[in-house]
Each structure stands twice: as C-alpha cells, then as structure tokens.
Computed example of a mutant assay.
Amino acid sequence: MALRREAFLGHVQGRGKYDSPHEADRAARVVLALLGAHLVGEVRAQLAARLPDEFALILLNPLQSAEPLPPERFVRATAAWIEGATEQTATWDVSAVLSTVADTAGDDLLGQILLQLPEGYDLLFGRPQTT
C-alpha cells in the first residue's frame, strides 16, 4: 500500500532535518525525478505503486538521463537542480529521500532497484550491501 504524502514527507523531513515540509518536498521531487530516469519497466512501476500519487507521477515521468549516472554524478545532478545546493547538501538530500524510498520499497524491491543502478547506490539508499 502506498504511503500518504504527509507520511512520506514527514520521513524525508525528519531524516533530512529540514525546517519545513516545503524543503523536504523539493528534495523528494528532484531526487525521484532523477531516480526515475535510472529505473525501467516493472521495477519502476512497482516502486511508483508504493509512493504517494504525486511522487509516483514524478518517478514515472522522469528527467531524462542519457546514461545511468554513477552515485557521485547523481549527487552532482541533484545539486544542479536544487537552488543554492552544494554537493554536501545534495548528498544529504539524496540520502534523506532514498533512505525513505528504501523503507517504502522493502528489501525485495530494493534489491531489484539496486540491480538496475550502477555500483555504489546501496550507500545512497542507506543500505550498504556486503560483497
């Protein structure tokens, strides 16, 4: 079952230590738009089904990416889309949103998501994988 928007943003806001739901919303929109460009098919559809409607639409209509970005470039791209962001603040934004996404997705779906992403995203999701 999909999380309600307020609940999802509440988790992001808490993890990102944002002053307002508006800041959490901005981070969630940018990170999910970038993430959506990296996921395809059933995995993207399953994740969208677990997100609040508004964020599911963002995931399903992503910013275009010519290639899957390695984690460092994903963070840099996030910084470029958030006004006034630095790589440090963008790392915080990405982590706050993706760790919430990881909880929302559950372990099985997260495993499928990580298979579609370049190496190193497990850390951005806050779920380091043992190799």
Rank of each mutant, 00 (worst) to 15 (best):
V12A: 03
Y121I: 15
L39C: 11
I58E: 13
G14H: 14
A105V: 11
L115P: 02
T130H: 10
V43R: 00
L47M: 02
G41Y: 04
R4C: 02
A2E: 01
A56G: 08
P71K: 08
L51I: 09
E119W: 12
A79Y: 04
P62V: 05
F125Y: 13
G36D: 01
A77V: 01
E42W: 07
R73P: 10
Q129A: 14
R5Y: 15
L115H: 12
E54G: 14
D103Q: 09
R5L: 15
G84R: 01
D53G: 08
R5T: 15
A28S: 15
Q13V: 04
T89M: 01
Q116K: 11
L35R: 01
S99M: 10
I82C: 03
R4E: 09
Q88M: 02
R76G: 08
P62R: 02
L114W: 07
P21M: 13
G36S: 05
S99Q: 05
M1V: 11
Q13F: 02
P128D: 03
R5W: 11
D108L: 09
L63K: 09
D93G: 03
H11Q: 10
L47H: 05
L47I: 08
A33Q: 10
L123R: 09
T78P: 00
H38P: 01
Y18E: 05
L110G: 11
G126Q: 10
D108F: 13
V30W: 03
P68H: 06
H38T: 02
R4H: 03
E67T: 05
Q13L: 10
P70R: 15
F8I: 12
H22G: 11
W81I: 04
R127T: 13
A2S: 05
L98Q: 05
P71Q: 07
T91V: 08
L3D: 00
L34F: 10
R44H: 02
T131P: 03
D53E: 12
D93Y: 00
E6D: 08
F125Q: 13
V94Y: 15
A33N: 09
G84E: 08
R29W: 10
E87K: 03
G10W: 08
S20C: 07
Q88Y: 02
